[in-house]
Protein backbone atom coordinates (compact mmCIF):
# COMPACT_ATOMS: atom_id res chain seq x y z
CA UNK A 1 0.00 0.00 0.00
CA UNK A 2 1.23 3.44 -0.99
CA UNK A 3 1.57 5.93 1.86
CA UNK A 4 1.33 9.64 1.14
CA UNK A 5 2.03 10.56 4.73
CA UNK A 6 3.80 8.52 7.36
CA UNK A 7 3.45 9.59 10.99
CA UNK A 8 6.18 8.20 13.25
CA UNK A 9 6.48 8.53 17.03
CA UNK A 10 4.71 11.85 16.82
CA UNK A 11 3.93 13.84 19.98
CA UNK A 12 2.62 17.36 20.30
CA UNK A 13 2.66 19.81 23.19
CA UNK A 14 0.87 23.05 24.04
CA UNK A 15 3.31 24.41 26.61
CA UNK A 16 3.30 21.82 29.41
CA UNK A 17 0.23 20.00 28.13
CA UNK A 18 0.83 16.99 25.93
CA UNK A 19 -1.98 16.96 23.36
CA UNK A 20 -0.78 14.05 21.22
CA UNK A 21 1.04 11.01 22.55
CA UNK A 22 3.40 8.99 20.39
CA UNK A 23 1.27 8.52 17.28
CA UNK A 24 2.14 6.06 14.55
CA UNK A 25 -0.04 5.73 11.48
CA UNK A 26 0.04 5.97 7.71
CA UNK A 27 -2.14 8.16 5.50
CA UNK A 28 -2.80 6.28 2.24
CA UNK A 29 -2.43 8.01 -1.11
CA UNK A 30 -5.66 8.93 -2.92
CA UNK A 31 -7.76 7.55 -0.12
CA UNK A 32 -10.01 9.21 2.43
CA UNK A 33 -8.86 8.84 6.01
CA UNK A 34 -11.32 9.78 8.74
CA UNK A 35 -10.27 10.72 12.27
CA UNK A 36 -12.91 10.21 14.94
CA UNK A 37 -13.03 10.60 18.69
CA UNK A 38 -14.65 12.75 21.38
CA UNK A 39 -14.05 16.49 21.68
CA UNK A 40 -10.61 17.32 23.00
CA UNK A 41 -9.11 13.98 22.00
CA UNK A 42 -6.51 15.68 19.84
CA UNK A 43 -7.82 14.80 16.39
CA UNK A 44 -8.02 18.44 15.28
CA UNK A 45 -4.58 19.15 16.73
CA UNK A 46 -3.27 16.19 14.78
CA UNK A 47 -4.87 17.42 11.57
CA UNK A 48 -3.42 20.89 12.02
CA UNK A 49 -0.02 19.34 12.72
CA UNK A 50 -0.04 17.83 9.24
CA UNK A 51 0.39 21.20 7.54
CA UNK A 52 1.90 22.95 10.54
CA UNK A 53 -1.01 25.32 11.09
CA UNK A 54 -0.24 24.91 14.80
CA UNK A 55 2.95 26.87 14.26
CA UNK A 56 0.97 30.09 14.78
CA UNK A 57 0.09 29.02 18.34
CA UNK A 58 2.50 30.19 21.01
CA UNK A 59 4.21 27.50 23.02
CA UNK A 60 3.28 24.73 20.60
CA UNK A 61 5.98 22.09 20.07
CA UNK A 62 6.20 18.89 18.04
CA UNK A 63 8.30 15.76 18.52
CA UNK A 64 8.78 12.86 16.14
CA UNK A 65 8.28 12.79 12.42
CA UNK A 66 5.62 13.44 9.83
CA UNK A 67 6.93 12.17 6.52
CA UNK A 68 5.37 13.65 3.38
CA UNK A 69 6.56 11.49 0.50
CA UNK A 70 9.40 10.41 2.74
CA UNK A 71 10.48 13.91 3.81
CA UNK A 72 9.94 15.03 7.41
CA UNK A 73 7.86 18.22 7.33
CA UNK A 74 9.29 19.30 10.71
CA UNK A 75 12.86 19.38 9.39
CA UNK A 76 14.39 22.82 9.85
CA UNK A 77 14.99 23.24 6.11
CA UNK A 78 11.30 22.81 5.23
CA UNK A 79 9.56 25.97 4.00
CA UNK A 80 6.22 26.09 5.82
CA UNK A 81 4.67 28.21 3.09
CA UNK A 82 5.53 25.63 0.43
CA UNK A 83 4.38 22.83 2.69
CA UNK A 84 0.93 24.41 3.04
CA UNK A 85 0.69 24.77 -0.69
CA UNK A 86 1.13 20.98 -0.93
CA UNK A 87 -1.08 20.22 2.09
CA UNK A 88 -4.19 22.41 1.97
CA UNK A 89 -6.88 22.77 4.59
CA UNK A 90 -10.64 23.26 4.76
CA UNK A 91 -11.92 24.54 8.07
CA UNK A 92 -14.82 23.80 10.37
CA UNK A 93 -16.65 27.04 9.75
CA UNK A 94 -16.79 28.11 6.11
CA UNK A 95 -14.37 31.04 5.94
CA UNK A 96 -14.54 32.64 2.51
CA UNK A 97 -12.74 35.97 2.39
CA UNK A 98 -15.07 39.00 2.33
CA UNK A 99 -14.39 39.44 -1.38
CA UNK A 100 -15.96 38.28 -4.63
CA UNK A 101 -16.45 34.61 -5.43
CA UNK A 102 -13.94 34.87 -8.25
CA UNK A 103 -11.31 36.51 -6.08
CA UNK A 104 -11.71 33.87 -3.41
CA UNK A 105 -10.81 31.08 -5.82
CA UNK A 106 -8.22 33.15 -7.66
CA UNK A 107 -6.53 34.08 -4.39
CA UNK A 108 -4.21 31.09 -4.15
CA UNK A 109 -3.11 31.01 -7.80
CA UNK A 110 -2.48 34.74 -7.58
CA UNK A 111 -0.31 34.76 -4.46
CA UNK A 112 1.59 31.70 -5.63
CA UNK A 113 1.96 33.03 -9.17
CA UNK A 114 0.47 29.88 -10.70
CA UNK A 115 -1.40 31.63 -13.51
CA UNK A 116 0.55 33.35 -16.24
CA UNK A 117 -2.02 35.53 -17.97
CA UNK A 118 -5.53 36.44 -16.88
CA UNK A 119 -7.06 33.98 -19.32
CA UNK A 120 -5.25 31.18 -17.57
CA UNK A 121 -6.56 32.42 -14.22
CA UNK A 122 -10.14 32.31 -15.52
CA UNK A 123 -9.53 28.72 -16.52
CA UNK A 124 -8.19 27.74 -13.11
CA UNK A 125 -11.12 29.42 -11.36
CA UNK A 126 -13.68 27.70 -13.57
CA UNK A 127 -12.04 24.29 -13.25
CA UNK A 128 -11.72 24.59 -9.47
CA UNK A 129 -15.35 25.61 -9.12
CA UNK A 130 -16.40 22.72 -11.36
CA UNK A 131 -14.33 20.31 -9.31
CA UNK A 132 -15.98 21.63 -6.17
CA UNK A 133 -19.44 21.13 -7.74
CA UNK A 134 -20.17 24.83 -7.39
CA UNK A 135 -19.79 26.10 -10.96
CA UNK A 136 -23.45 25.76 -11.93
CA UNK A 137 -24.52 27.65 -8.79
CA UNK A 138 -22.24 30.63 -9.22
CA UNK A 139 -21.23 30.94 -12.87
CA UNK A 140 -23.53 33.95 -13.36
CA UNK A 141 -22.38 35.83 -10.29
CA UNK A 142 -18.65 35.32 -10.03
CA UNK A 143 -18.20 38.97 -9.12
CA UNK A 144 -20.82 38.77 -6.38
CA UNK A 145 -19.83 38.66 -2.71
CA UNK A 146 -18.81 35.22 -1.46
CA UNK A 147 -20.58 35.78 1.82
CA UNK A 148 -23.96 36.00 0.08
CA UNK A 149 -23.74 32.25 -0.60
CA UNK A 150 -25.43 29.80 1.74
CA UNK A 151 -23.19 27.91 4.19
CA UNK A 152 -23.03 24.76 2.08
CA UNK A 153 -22.03 26.74 -1.00
CA UNK A 154 -19.53 28.71 1.08
CA UNK A 155 -17.88 25.50 2.23
CA UNK A 156 -17.68 24.22 -1.36
CA UNK A 157 -16.20 27.59 -2.29
CA UNK A 158 -13.55 27.05 0.38
CA UNK A 159 -12.85 23.63 -1.12
CA UNK A 160 -12.56 25.23 -4.56
CA UNK A 161 -10.21 27.83 -3.10
CA UNK A 162 -8.07 25.08 -1.60
CA UNK A 163 -7.85 22.88 -4.70
CA UNK A 164 -7.19 25.88 -6.96
CA UNK A 165 -3.52 25.69 -5.93
CA UNK A 166 -3.39 21.96 -6.76
CA UNK A 167 -2.38 20.61 -3.35
CA UNK A 168 -1.46 16.96 -2.92
CA UNK A 169 -3.24 16.48 0.38
CA UNK A 170 -6.49 18.13 1.50
CA UNK A 171 -7.13 18.29 5.24
CA UNK A 172 -10.73 18.82 6.33
CA UNK A 173 -11.52 19.86 9.89
CA UNK A 174 -15.15 18.92 10.53
CA UNK A 175 -16.14 20.51 7.23
CA UNK A 176 -19.83 19.69 7.64
CA UNK A 177 -20.46 20.58 11.27
CA UNK A 178 -22.00 23.94 10.30
CA UNK A 179 -24.05 22.48 7.44
CA UNK A 180 -27.49 20.93 7.04
CA UNK A 181 -27.87 17.27 5.98
CA UNK A 182 -28.35 18.02 2.28
CA UNK A 183 -25.26 20.21 2.11
CA UNK A 184 -23.38 17.59 4.12
CA UNK A 185 -24.26 14.88 1.63
CA UNK A 186 -23.06 17.08 -1.23
CA UNK A 187 -19.70 17.59 0.46
CA UNK A 188 -19.39 13.84 1.03
CA UNK A 189 -20.10 13.10 -2.63
CA UNK A 190 -17.58 15.74 -3.55
CA UNK A 191 -14.96 14.09 -1.35
CA UNK A 192 -15.41 10.80 -3.20
CA UNK A 193 -14.71 12.53 -6.52
CA UNK A 194 -11.76 14.47 -5.14
CA UNK A 195 -10.15 11.30 -3.78
CA UNK A 196 -9.21 10.41 -7.36
CA UNK A 197 -6.76 13.31 -7.43
CA UNK A 198 -6.08 14.11 -3.79
CA UNK A 199 -5.25 12.41 -0.54
CA UNK A 200 -7.93 13.45 1.93
CA UNK A 201 -7.85 13.48 5.72
CA UNK A 202 -11.08 14.43 7.44
CA UNK A 203 -11.80 15.04 11.10
CA UNK A 204 -15.42 14.40 11.92
CA UNK A 205 -17.69 14.26 14.93
CA UNK A 206 -20.16 12.14 13.06
CA UNK A 207 -19.44 8.44 13.08
CA UNK A 208 -22.02 7.95 10.35
CA UNK A 209 -20.01 10.30 8.20
CA UNK A 210 -16.78 8.44 8.87
CA UNK A 211 -18.49 5.12 8.10
CA UNK A 212 -20.14 6.43 4.92
CA UNK A 213 -17.42 8.52 3.42
CA UNK A 214 -13.99 7.17 4.33
CA UNK A 215 -11.73 4.29 3.39
CA UNK A 216 -9.64 4.32 6.53
CA UNK A 217 -10.49 5.40 10.05
CA UNK A 218 -8.38 6.35 13.04
CA UNK A 219 -9.95 6.49 16.50
CA UNK A 220 -8.40 8.98 18.94
CA UNK A 221 -8.82 8.97 22.70
CA UNK A 222 -7.12 11.44 25.08
CA UNK A 223 -4.33 12.23 22.65
CA UNK A 224 -3.62 8.64 21.72
CA UNK A 225 -4.46 6.69 18.60
CA UNK A 226 -6.45 3.77 19.97
CA UNK A 227 -7.16 2.00 16.75
CA UNK A 228 -6.56 2.44 13.05
CA UNK A 229 -7.84 0.31 10.19
CA UNK A 230 -10.03 -0.05 7.15
CA UNK A 231 -13.30 1.75 7.83
CA UNK A 232 -15.61 -1.28 7.37
CA UNK A 233 -13.41 -3.40 9.65
CA UNK A 234 -13.15 -0.76 12.35
CA UNK A 235 -16.87 -0.16 12.45
CA UNK A 236 -18.07 -3.74 12.18
CA UNK A 237 -15.32 -5.57 13.95
CA UNK A 238 -13.23 -3.31 16.21
CA UNK A 239 -10.24 -4.86 17.89
CA UNK A 240 -10.27 -2.73 21.04
CA UNK A 241 -13.01 -2.59 23.59
CA UNK A 242 -12.77 1.19 23.88
CA UNK A 243 -13.35 1.56 20.15
CA UNK A 244 -16.40 -0.64 20.30
CA UNK A 245 -17.76 1.24 23.29
CA UNK A 246 -17.30 4.54 21.48
CA UNK A 247 -18.79 3.60 18.14
CA UNK A 248 -21.78 1.95 19.76
CA UNK A 249 -22.33 5.04 21.88
CA UNK A 250 -21.61 3.52 25.29
CA UNK A 251 -18.54 5.67 25.81
CA UNK A 252 -17.76 9.19 24.64
Amino acid sequence: MDNKLEIQNFSFYYGQFQALINLNLPIRRNQITALIGPSGCGKSTFLRALNRMNDTIKGARAEGQVLLDGKNIYDPDVDVVQLRQRVGMVFQRPNPFPQSIYNNVAYGPRVLGLAGGNGRLDEIVEQSLRDAALWEDVKDRLEGPAQALNPGQQQRLCIARTIAVKPEVVLMDEPCSALDPVATLKIEELMQQLAADYTIVIVTHSMEQAARASHWTGFFWLGELVEYGRTPDLFTNPEKELTEAYITGRQG
Partner: peptide, 23 residues
Protein backbone atom coordinates in the same frame (compact mmCIF):
# COMPACT_ATOMS: atom_id res chain seq x y z
CA UNK B 1 -10.49 32.29 10.22
CA UNK B 2 -9.56 34.59 7.34
CA UNK B 3 -5.88 34.47 8.25
CA UNK B 4 -5.98 30.69 8.66
CA UNK B 5 -7.73 30.32 5.32
CA UNK B 6 -5.05 32.33 3.59
CA UNK B 7 -2.10 30.70 5.35
CA UNK B 8 -3.47 27.22 4.66
CA UNK B 9 -3.34 27.91 0.92
CA UNK B 10 0.36 28.63 1.10
CA UNK B 11 0.28 32.41 1.23
CA UNK B 12 3.04 34.13 3.20
CA UNK B 13 2.36 36.20 6.27
CA UNK B 14 2.77 39.42 4.29
CA UNK B 15 0.52 38.25 1.44
CA UNK B 16 -2.11 37.37 4.01
CA UNK B 17 -1.92 40.80 5.61
CA UNK B 18 -1.87 42.67 2.32
CA UNK B 19 -4.51 40.77 0.39
CA UNK B 20 -6.87 39.49 3.07
CA UNK B 21 -6.53 41.25 6.41
CA UNK B 22 -6.21 44.84 5.17
CA UNK B 23 -9.14 44.61 2.72
Amino acid sequence: EYRDGSLAIGATHWQTVWRVVLP
